[in-house]
């Protein structure tokens, strides 16, 4: 569950300001965030994940007040509870597919890389159709394959919350639906919450709720 109250955020430079009086997303809910570029969708994901801190207001994610945590605790919380997917995949070019999926386990000692984790990584890769490319370098994958690797990386620690920032923005229609299927299936199977930024109105029908950032109102599924 995500709870935002009286949230105010602005960058030190520039006149961008984000004000959210109240926002709640329930556990297991699938929510799409829409709105014009630069309106603060990505910033909101960063605030929820504890990557950025608001000037005022509170952000509670999965019952934890992330604004009250110090930097180290926020990182530990993030890596164990939140799966992040980015539009530009953000894979490490010098790692193989398997190593990219296992990356969270190599950069935070709060996660332990053991045999079941490796098996889960292989299983995830098989589920998304890249099981035969585990040893391939990330640079040698197609766009669709790269995004599937990025999704596997986001899901490997079995998070309760998935924050996806335009994950289908660079994909063709077939891959868009495939990636979305993976995210939604995971959310359903693991009772996880999915909050996804998108510009693609064709995908909105697959979400339970759409939050339009322009007017900042939330509405029920159409």
């Amino acid at each position: 569950m995500i709870q935002l109250a009286e949230l105010q955020f602005g960058y030190r430079e520039g006149d961008f300001a984000l004000r959210i009086p109240k926002l709640e997303v329930q556990q297991r809910e699938r929510v799409a965030l829409i709105g014009p570029s630069g309106c603060g969708k990505t910033t909101l994901l960063h605030l929820i994940a504890g990557i950025a801190l608001p000037q005022s207001g509170r952000v509670r994610t999965n019952g934890v007040d992330v604004t009250a945590l110090d930097d180290g605790a926020r990182r530990d919380f993030r890596i164990g509870n939140i799966g992040l997917v980015f539009q530009e995949f953000e894979l490490l070019e010098y790692l193989s597919v398997l190593d990219n999926i296992l990356l969270p386990y190599r950069i935070n000692p709060s996660l332990r890389l053991e045999t079941p984790v490796r098996e889960r990584a292989e299983s995830l890769a098989r589920q998304v159709g890249i099981g035969d490319k585990l040893a391939r370098m990330a640079t040698r994958l197609s766009h669709g394959e790269k995004q599937r690797v990025a999704v596997c990386r986001a899901l490997i620690a079995e998070p309760e919350l998935i924050l996806a920032d335009e994950p289908t923005g660079n994909l063709d229609p077939a891959n868009k639906n495939r990636v979305l299927d993976i995210l939604i299936n995971y959310a359903e199977e693991h009772a996880a919450t999915l909050l996804m930024v998108t510009h693609d109105r064709d995908l909105l029908g697959r979400f339970e709720r759409v939050i339009d950032f322009k007017t900042f109102h939330s509405g029920e599924r159409a």
């Binding site: 180290g72 530990d76 164990g80 939140i82 992040l84 980015f86 953000e90 990356l103 969270p104 950069i107």
Partner: peptide, 20 residues
């Protein structure tokens, strides 16, 4: 920088990223 930011965003500890 992008690679380092990715590690930080997904929750890499400051010490681990510095250790890399």
């Amino acid at each position: 920088r992008g690679e380092i930011e990715t590690m930080i965003k997904i929750g890499g500890s400051r010490r681990s990223v510095a250790a890399v």
